[in-house]
């Protein structure tokens, strides 16, 4: 069978089975071949793998992997200067390495990549927020929370600055969407967190001053 294979002429059920046989990376690469293939993959989303999407927002890297980590694929930003942060914009310029020279683009921002993945897979997210670069996280995390998407792990370090308090209070009412919340407190930040909604698991690190009374 050396001539090109007419994949899209197969019945939908068969296509779905073919997609199931592909790894995470193969499916992402295939989704970039054409819009029609992409939409066929999206149609089969409910039968697709459940994946965990690790967002490394500072390094502009997205790692998509299975629960047991046997299957994984990385999407990373391509920058000319080598700088990972784009100081002129609040958006991260993320491009999938496989996107170049193909007929369909995954998008240029972190969120557009996430949206592309959300159409293909049943995703849970994992990320570690760095409050020093909060403006880079704000749009991404807010949109994910606003879309009621669930987080496998969310790590938040807190040192008590006004900005951090404000952001913490903004996202704390969505903690019900988080499976594992990790809070890393710096020595007495002078901040008493309020939990309007609770994650499934919570672990608080470096917090000898943090007692039951705070809850």
């Amino acid at each position: 069978m050396s001539s090109p294979f007419p994949l899209l002429r197969l019945p939908g059920v068969v296509l779905c089975e073919v997609f199931k046989s592909l790894s995470i990376g193969e499916k992402i690469k295939l989704s970039l071949c054409s819009k029609r293939i992409s939409s066929q993959i999206n149609n089969a989303r409910l039968y697709s793998q459940k994946v965990i999407v690790d967002l490394d927002i500072l390094r502009k890297k997205i790692r998509v992997h299975s629960k047991n980590d046997e299957d994984s694929f990385e999407i990373f930003a391509i920058t000319d200067s080598g700088n990972t942060l784009n100081s002129k914009s609040d958006q991260f310029l993320v491009t999938c390495d496989v996107v170049r020279d193909t007929s369909i683009s995954i998008g240029t921002t972190f969120l557009s990549v996430i949206r592309h993945l959300l159409k293909m897979f049943q995703c849970k997210f994992s990320t570690s927020i760095d409050f020093n670069y909060m403006r880079f996280y704000q749009s991404t995390t807010s949109e994910l929370f606003d879309s009621q998407l669930t987080f496998k792990t969310l790590t938040i370090p807190i040192n008590g600055s006004t900005d951090q308090k404000m952001v913490f209070n903004q996202i704390s009412n969505k903690f019900g969407l988080v499976e594992n919340l990790r809070i890393l407190f710096f020595p007495d930040p002078g901040f008493r967190p309020v939990f309007p909604s609770w994650p499934q698991n919570i672990s608080i690190w470096s917090s000898s001053w943090f007692t039951w009374n705070i809850f």
Partner: peptide, 28 residues
Amino acid sequence: TSYCCERIARMLRGKNTQEMIKVITLPT
């Protein structure tokens, strides 16, 4: 059906997007 699907998946396995486009009939 399952073996046939696996056979098709094998055509795409280990290939990048450009190579996949060559394997399947997709006019640019």
